[in-house]
């Protein structure tokens, strides 16, 4: 097993631990989430921008991903 696979496995273990840890905490009530839907905090408000940026970076660098969505063709390659 090469070193890279070990890194990926380690990161996966951390993410799994985060998930288990999240489920172990007391859920945040809906009326406590006002700050989380603010556009400067929420994930949703920057989703389109993140997708656009991913395409720009894909055209200039050798990797992809990070926004949880699928890629596609791009004229700027």
């Amino acid at each position: 097993m090469n070193r890279m696979r070990l890194h990926v496995l380690a990161l996966g273990a951390v993410l799994l631990a985060l998930g288990v840890g999240g489920c172990a905490t007391v859920p945040v009530k809906p009326w406590q989430r006002e700050r989380l839907v603010d556009p400067i905090v929420a994930f949703k408000s920057e989703a389109r921008e993140d997708a656009r940026k991913m395409k720009t970076f894909e055209a200039r660098e050798g990797s992809t991903g990070g926004v949880g969505g699928a890629g596609g063709g791009c004229a700027c390659k």
Partner: peptide, 26 residues
């Protein structure tokens, strides 16, 4: 051709903290 899949978790950790993590494969 490109086959893609992803799995993404999003958590409300506290009234002021959001967490998202995931894996993707192409």
């Amino acid at each position: 051709t490109t086959l893609h899949w992803n799995a993404v978790m999003t958590e409300v950790v506290s009234p002021s903290l959001l967490l998202r993590y995931g894996v993707e494969y192409n």
